[in-house]
Amino acid sequence: MDDLVDDHEPGGGDDPNVLVARTEHTLAAIADVARRDEDGPVVAKAIDTLDDALDSLVVGERYLRRRLRLPEGPGAPAETADLLLLVKVQELRLSIGEIRVRRRAAAAVELHRSLTRLRAGLGTTELQREIPRELGRLGYSRSLMSGLRGSTWRASSAFAHEDESLAGTLVEVGSAMPGLIGREEPETEAVRLRTAVLVRDAQSRPRVHRELVTVGDTRDYAAAPLVVHGRVVGLVHVDRHSQADVVDEGDRELLGLFADGVGLAFERARYEERFSAMRRQLELQITGIDELAYGTLDWADAGERPVPHPYLSDGPLNELTRRELEVLRYLAGGASNQEIADRLGLSVGTVKTHVKALLRKLGAANRTDAAARFHDLTKGA
């Protein structure tokens, strides 16, 4: 029994594998005591994870507390040893609890960072690509992003720690053999209840996506729905391929928060994409209206010298649209693209497009050449 009291940090420090090993050692000692107890042996399940260790330690502690309340008699000499075992069990439970608290606190901080990165102006296509990578940064060794159309969910992107080929395989399998709501029980629950779910011992579960579970050799995993504008549009899956550090209830809750944040990021991205598309369409409509009206209207800024009408002038300027001629006039005056955009109420990208077009039509090599040609063609006008 002396080997239970040593100079190591209580519970074996922060290494989950050490904690599992020390838990097994402690429970073996409790089992030795239990075999001599008239109440019979303590039956404990196999210990593969920290959750298993914690569950078994709770059973062992209950047994020891019950035994220590026995009256003095033939079993009294064992009381000191029982007390030492109880202390060891409590130390192990404390160490496991501290690890879990620290991990959840760190995960909350990283969750905020991940969602901040995903809201940083990414489009919907970029979001789909980045979501599995951000889940990797949250500590999951494998993650999968799937889109949902009707009742079918199909993989679109994945992450596998230090194994890009596995990530590709997960997408390939999840795309070629899509899941079906109503067939895979965990995903059906996630979509219909709009909540994150935890799946334990997936290898023995009958109603899971068997091909994905097999190719990933997945034991435990969590899945959560992505809700955008009140509708489930996708699913995210995570797991950890480790013997002592698997997915648990804390991961289910974390993934649920992540999915909620991602849903908002998708909504924001869609609004921005629609706004940009509407702005581009409006610019095209304004340009078309201007060019239709230009056949009957002269133009000149107040206090500035007017230039010839583009459709009535001779030479290369006749090939330019009204908007291109406006851009050329400011360009010839030394204005930058940003300054031209501000004066004309356009985006810098639109100005660049007009500059390229007018350089081509004038046969100019660059902006300076175009400005010189403009001055030559409008000299005396």
Results as ranks from 00 to 15, higher is better:
Lys356Thr: 03
Leu331Gly: 05
Ala21Met: 04
Val171Met: 02
Val355Tyr: 07
Val42Glu: 12
Gly333Val: 00
Tyr294Met: 03
Ile340Ser: 04
Glu189Trp: 15
His25Arg: 13
Arg205Gly: 00
Asp301Gly: 12
Glu79Pro: 01
Ala341Trp: 07
Val228Gln: 07
Tyr330Cys: 01
Val171Trp: 12
Leu212Met: 13
Val18Gln: 11
Leu68Pro: 10
Arg183Gly: 03
Asp251Asn: 08
Gly315Met: 08
Leu198Ser: 05
Arg67Leu: 07
Glu304Ala: 12
Thr26His: 12
Leu111Val: 06
Ala223Met: 15
Gly182His: 14
Glu319Gln: 15
Ile340His: 03
Gly230Thr: 01
Ala370Val: 00
Thr350Ser: 10
Gly250Asp: 05
Leu135Met: 13
Ala53Asn: 01
Glu110Asp: 15
Gly75Ile: 06
Ala167Tyr: 04
Gly250Ser: 07
Phe266Ile: 02
Ala167Phe: 11
Arg360His: 15
Arg322Glu: 01
Ala222Tyr: 08
Met177Gly: 00
Asp245Lys: 03
Thr195Glu: 05
Glu79Met: 14
Lys88Ser: 05
Gly147Pro: 00
Phe159Gly: 01
Trp153Cys: 00
Lys352Thr: 11
Glu24Leu: 10
Gly150Ser: 13
Gly182Glu: 02
Ile99His: 10
Glu91Val: 07
Val42Asn: 02
Lys356Pro: 01
Thr353Met: 04
Val173Met: 08
Gly295Ile: 03
Gln243Ala: 15
Arg149His: 14
Ala222Met: 07
Leu118Ala: 00
Gly168Ile: 02
Gly174Ser: 10
Glu249Cys: 00
Leu320Gln: 05
Lys352His: 14
Gly97Gln: 09
Leu255His: 08
Leu284Phe: 14
Asp260Val: 06
Pro308Asn: 11
Arg117Tyr: 14
Val228Met: 05
Lys45Gly: 15
Leu377Val: 09
Trp299Tyr: 08
Arg194Tyr: 10
His8Glu: 13
Leu254Glu: 07
Arg205Glu: 13
Gly123Arg: 06
Ile30Gly: 00
Ser175Arg: 11
Glu38Gln: 15
Ala44Asp: 06
